[in-house]
Amino acid sequence: MIDAKNSIPRWVSLLYRYGQMYIGEHLKHYDIGRGQHIFLNALYKEDGLTQEELADHLKIDKGTTAKALKKLEAQGYITRSVSAKDKRCNEVHLTEKALLIKEDVRKVLTDWRERLTYGLTDEEKQLAHSILEKMGNNAARFAEEQVDL
């Protein structure tokens, strides 16, 4: 029997909080806040996304996205400009400053992943990934159902 202090949501939440603390601590000398690295990482994968695309891709509300991007812009990590394709949208682009720290940001994220999976076999890592992916898909499906109500 699983009690509340051993529930899956508790452990997922704990992993998330510890990850945010670890990443925040290791990126603080760049003045990157706990919630900002995910925007940089998404742009490292595909620069030039619109704010709306970033919010949708990361499953973060538009207000929080705008606030995080505003701070990254003020720090000189990104620029925002009106999209040529759709004047209602802002495209987000990385600056040279952001590109200069790309390897450091990626290393912090990789180091955290390695710490999380330390001592796990390849099979265990694959199983954990598979289970978490299924749980993420369930969460997305139920969130969509709530929107449709």
Score class of each variant (00 low, 15 high):
residue 138 N to Q: 15
residue 125 K to A: 06
residue 133 E to A: 15
residue 121 T to L: 05
residue 128 A to F: 11
residue 136 G to F: 11
residue 132 L to V: 05
residue 143 A to W: 13
residue 117 T to W: 01
residue 126 Q to Y: 09
residue 114 E to D: 13
residue 116 L to P: 00
residue 127 L to R: 08
residue 133 E to T: 12
residue 123 E to D: 04
residue 134 K to N: 11
residue 112 W to E: 02
residue 115 R to D: 03
residue 143 A to F: 15
residue 120 L to H: 01
residue 134 K to D: 13
residue 138 N to W: 12
residue 115 R to V: 06
residue 135 M to A: 15
residue 124 E to G: 02
residue 143 A to D: 12
residue 144 E to F: 07
residue 120 L to M: 15
residue 135 M to E: 04
residue 137 N to G: 06
residue 132 L to K: 08
residue 143 A to P: 01
residue 125 K to H: 00
residue 135 M to I: 11
residue 121 T to P: 00
residue 141 R to W: 13
residue 137 N to V: 07
residue 119 G to T: 03
residue 136 G to W: 05
residue 113 R to K: 11
residue 139 A to V: 10
residue 132 L to Y: 13
residue 124 E to W: 03
residue 117 T to M: 06
residue 119 G to R: 01
residue 137 N to H: 14
residue 138 N to M: 14
residue 116 L to N: 02
residue 142 F to K: 13
residue 127 L to C: 02
residue 125 K to C: 03
residue 120 L to C: 08
residue 128 A to R: 06
residue 112 W to F: 14
residue 112 W to V: 02
residue 122 D to W: 08
residue 136 G to N: 11
residue 121 T to D: 01
residue 116 L to I: 10
residue 144 E to T: 11
residue 135 M to W: 11
residue 142 F to E: 14
residue 129 H to N: 13
residue 111 D to N: 08
residue 143 A to H: 09
residue 133 E to L: 10
residue 131 I to E: 08
residue 115 R to L: 12
residue 120 L to N: 04
residue 116 L to C: 11
residue 131 I to N: 03
residue 116 L to K: 07
residue 129 H to E: 07
residue 134 K to F: 06
residue 121 T to E: 02
residue 124 E to I: 03
residue 115 R to E: 10
residue 120 L to T: 02
residue 111 D to G: 04
residue 117 T to R: 00
residue 118 Y to W: 13
residue 139 A to I: 12
residue 123 E to L: 06
residue 128 A to T: 07
residue 142 F to I: 10
residue 123 E to K: 07
residue 140 A to H: 10
residue 140 A to E: 09
residue 134 K to T: 06
residue 136 G to A: 12
residue 117 T to F: 03
residue 115 R to P: 00
residue 127 L to I: 15
residue 114 E to P: 01
residue 134 K to A: 14
residue 120 L to G: 04
residue 138 N to A: 13
residue 131 I to M: 14
residue 132 L to S: 08
residue 131 I to H: 06
residue 120 L to Q: 03
residue 121 T to W: 00
residue 128 A to D: 01
residue 139 A to P: 03
residue 135 M to S: 09
residue 138 N to R: 15
residue 143 A to C: 09
residue 113 R to M: 08
residue 134 K to Q: 13
residue 140 A to V: 12
residue 144 E to Y: 10
residue 137 N to T: 13
residue 125 K to L: 02
residue 117 T to S: 07
residue 144 E to S: 11
residue 119 G to M: 05
residue 137 N to F: 09
residue 123 E to M: 01
residue 141 R to P: 00
residue 126 Q to T: 10
residue 114 E to M: 07
residue 115 R to N: 07
residue 123 E to F: 02
residue 130 S to T: 14
residue 133 E to D: 14
